[in-house]
Design a protein around this nucleic acid. Structure first.
Length: 605
RNA sequence: GGUCUCGUAGCUCAAUUGGAUAGAGCAGCUGCCUUCUAAGCAGCAGGUUGCUGGUUCGAUUCCAGCCGGGAUCACCA
């Protein structure tokens, strides 16, 4: 067996990058009698020949030679011994390597012949991802869309990395906020229901929340005009007194209030369910704050006994995190009741009891709560839970408007349902204008518009690094061309069209006798091969943006290939089959990676 | 004020985690549909990476100090 054959067999077991790294390590060992652990390998800049570049500056210490000489020696050695490098060039300290086309072909073969390419094998680990978790007094808005798409996508990314994932959310169904809506509804609602009003339940409850605010402000102003100090006025406004009283009666399980609360929450849930359905997100289990808000108290008291926490003179219980660089934080009020943090401690513990095999939790919550989660994880650690180390706050930036932050009180909130509808309407309008869908039914056009509109929206929100704030301009509709979801969907549809044509011509995709490749083909194989790295990186960084940008690059690359090489003009049957196979592999991977973003791709568009 | 975070082309975002001449899209300009879908492709133009220093062979990236946004520092959730 010659070297090349041996290497090709090896390729099916190892990936190309790993093989290259090993070969470089061997080269360094032989040439300089030294060992390197980390070889700096990066993609070659487009302007130079080659696909992989070894950064040789760090190796000069081992070689005791200049960077260019070091690069040249390694290059020569790889050509003589590796069996996969055919040429090289050196620019400054950068060693650019040209990989043999036969190797690329075999890399592609292993991708193409693997029906599960796109997902890593199960690793036996379990993860929990919490996302959404809205309050039940207002409808979902643009910020929630980012949250939901992020959480859903991160969960899917972990699944593709081999984890078993549990998606959950906690519903903040309790507290003064919902009592405000209840108070306003009782005062001004005249028995209005979603059915009677013809609006979604969450919208109706949201309307009364706004109504509360309006009346409350008016009442406060009136009291101030009567000479009441502002602080007093805020407490004495009759509508606020009603809401506070309702909260107390709710906590005492007063039947009338409890039933009103249940009714109004059920309206909200129905509304949310419709929105979630359209968003395409789902949850395995819902936690309700009304069930869990007392849970943390026992754990805090136990911690107090063990000396993890301390009590102040007024009876309130605190944790001291000054040694960790944080502050002191109250965990139980002087009257013995729980605070937000107390609940979160309880809920975290409950979830590990419900799902004993999870190794950690991901909390998809806005970056305004970074401090809260730092404290929470420190407390869990202090209580001795080993899994506290594996809890992660998936902190994302706000979605800002050109005018600044969205504010419900100023009416600048971008409603989730409205925005989705606008996107779908835009997509439908453009689909009809382009007129490529003559043979489609109305139903199919609607379904396609839904796919494109939501694809554009999701991609728009997910392509940005989650950690960063992002800007949304409601006056400029989200693009359907360029660096967008529809661009990728279009590329997929285009490929499917090619595959349909190939099938009708009885051309079956295959990889056989491939000796030489076009640059565009090599580039595509490179991208396909790089997917696994990106998938792992996306999980490591908790970042759907990594997948979104990879997918865009792959589609972009394919379109260049598509433009430069007319597939069916090819006379050589082996090349023809290979190009169909390459197209199929790209389409399959586009579909797979888009699904990690929660975006579907069409057969035609 | 303390802590955290961000500042890249007119606009929205990238940059393989310290690597080469900082890349895409949109907007603007120029080409390409009688050949697989023009929601596409090719090209032009657009940059003192907020500023000043430092570390390094090499800095958008790390450090320090300014300038400018944002968040947070509740017995609210």
């Amino acid at each position: 067996m010659n070297l090349a054959t041996y290497v090709l067999q090896l390729m099916s077991l190892m990936n190309l990058d790993l093989t290259l790294r090993t070969e470089i390590q061997k080269a360094v060992a032989t040439l300089f009698n030294q060992s390197v652990e980390q070889v700096q390998l990066q993609p070659t800049n487009k302007e130079f020949e080659g696909s992989h570049t070894v950064v040789c500056f760090p190796l000069t210490k081992l070689s005791r030679k200049g960077p260019e000489e070091t690069a040249r020696l390694i290059g020569e050695h790889l050509i003589a011994n590796s069996g996969i490098v055919t040429r090289y060039n050196v620019v400054k300290g950068f060693l650019n390597l040209v990989i043999a086309d036969s190797v690329w072909a075999s890399v592609f073969e292993s991708v193409f012949s693997n029906p599960k390419y796109g997902s890593l094998p199960a690793n036996g680990k379990e993860m929990m991802v919490e996302y959404s978790s809205p309050n039940t007094n207002k409808p979902l808005h643009l910020g929630h869309l980012r949250n939901n798409f992020l959480g859903y996508s991160v969960a899917e990314i972990f699944k593709a990395n081999g984890y078993k994932v549990h998606k959950v959310q906690i519903i903040n169904d309790r507290g003064i906020h919902i009592c405000k809506s209840m108070a306003a509804w009782q005062l001004y609602g005249n028995g209005e229901t979603p059915d009677r009003a013809g609006v979604k339940g969450d919208k109706l409850v949201g309307k009364y929340y706004v109504e509360f605010d309006r009346n409350y402000k008016a009442q406060v102003q009136e009291l101030i005009a009567q000479g009441v100090p502002e602080a007093d006025a805020e407490k004495k406004a009759p509508i606020m007194k009603l809401a506070v009283e309702m909260l107390q009666r709710w906590e005492a399980k007063d039947e009338e209030i409890y039933s009103l609360w249940k009714t109004m929450n059920s309206w909200v849930y129905e509304g949310f369910d419709a929105t979630y359905k359209r968003m395409g997100v789902d949850f395995e289990k819902l936690y309700y704050e009304s069930n869990t808000y007392l849970l943390g108290k026992d754990e805090v008291l136990r911690g107090l006994e063990r000396g993890v926490f301390f009590k102040k003179e007024d009876g309130s219980v605190w944790v001291d995190l000054t040694a960790e660089g944080l502050d002191q934080k109250v965990l139980l009020r002087s009257d013995g009741t729980s605070v937000y943090m107390t609940q979160d401690i309880g809920t975290a513990i409950l979830r590990f009891l419900d799902f004993p095999k999870i190794e950690g939790q991901v909390y998809t919550v806005g970056n305004e709560q970074e401090y809260h989660f730092k404290v929470l994880f420190q407390i869990l650690k202090k209580l001795g839970f080993a899994w506290a180390e594996k809890c992660y706050h998936l902190s994302y930036g706000m979605v800002d408007l050109p005018s600044g932050k969205m504010k419900s009180r100023e009416g600048t909130v971008v409603d989730a349902d409205d925005l989705m509808q606008e996107m779908v309407d835009d997509a439908e309008k453009q689909t009809r204008e382009l007129g490529k869908i003559e043979d489609s039914s109305e139903e199919e056009i609607k379904a396609l518009a839904e796919m494109i509109g939501l694809g554009a929206l999701k991609f728009f929100l997910l392509k940005v690094d989650p950690k960063k704030r992002m800007l949304f301009d409601p006056n400029e509709s989200i693009q359907l061309q360029g660096h967008t979801g529809p661009f990728i969907q279009y590329t997929h549809a285009r490929i499917r069209s090619i595959l349909r044509k190939a099938a009708s011509m009885n051309i079956s995709p295959a990889v056989e006798n491939i000796i030489a490749l076009e640059p565009a083909e090599r580039e595509l194989i490179f991208q396909l091969n790089n997917y696994t790295n990106k998938l792992q990186e996306a999980a490591r960084e908790y970042s759907p943006a990594v997948i979104a940008n990879f997918t865009y690059d792959l589609a972009k690359e394919y379109n260049q290939f598509y433009q430069s090489i007319p597939i069916f003009n090819e006379a050589d049957p082996a090349k023809l089959k290979f190009r169909v196979a390459l197209s199929k592999a790209v389409a399959d991977l586009l579909k797979k990676s888009m699904s990690l973003l929660g975006i579907q791709v069409p057969e035609k568009m």
